[in-house]
């Protein structure tokens, strides 16, 4: 099984199931989880995180609905190959929107452009991006 551990914070305003979803997505984005890796079973993770198994099951359903994981009957839940379901234009539109919000915050926090650039570069290294090969940016339909 893949290296996979993260913590949840029950006192956070973010619901536990959403914390699990973003925890898995983050692990995939940073390469700690790779396509084909098996996630712990609902029971195992419930025991490890000490939270209700229904909450885990709900998070796993959401991950599968988003195409982050797929479940093979009887074998468990696995990280799926990344598929681009959105067009390149739509991908760029969404990332610009997120960047606008992020940079708005940065300006109001009083950061300098060079600070932002340094933080951004440092963060980039922590994530694993598609290398622009065979099936990236594939259009739907």
């Amino acid at each position: 099984m893949a290296q996979f551990s993260f913590r949840v914070d029950p006192s956070s305003a973010e619901p536990l199931f959403a914390q699990i979803v973003s925890g898995v997505k983050h692990a995939v984005a940073t390469g700690r989880l790779a396509p084909g890796d098996r996630l712990p079973s609902v029971r195992e993770l419930a025991r490890e995180l000490v939270i209700n198994p229904n909450t885990i099951a709900k998070a796993y359903e959401a991950l599968e609905a988003e195409g982050i994981t797929l479940s093979r009957h009887g074998a468990g839940t696995f990280i799926a190959e990344r598929r681009a379901v959105l067009s390149g234009d739509e991908q760029r539109r969404r990332i610009r929107e997120a960047l606008t919000a992020l940079l708005t915050d940065a300006v109001h926090l009083g950061l300098r452009e060079s600070d932002v650039r340094r933080e951004f570069d440092a963060a980039l290294h922590r994530f694993r991006f598609d290398t622009g090969g065979d099936d990236t940016g594939k259009r739907k339909g």
Binding site: S11, L16, R43, V50, I51, N52, P53
Partner: peptide, 26 residues
């Protein structure tokens, strides 16, 4: 958590510890 892994078992509890409730209750 072990206890609620049991299919169809119903747990009714009271608690003051809301973090615990958040973990186990649905």
């Amino acid at each position: 958590i072990e206890l609620i892994q049991h299919e169809g078992r119903t747990v009714f509890l009271t608690s003051h510890l809301l973090g615990d409730v958040e973990r186990v209750a649905d």
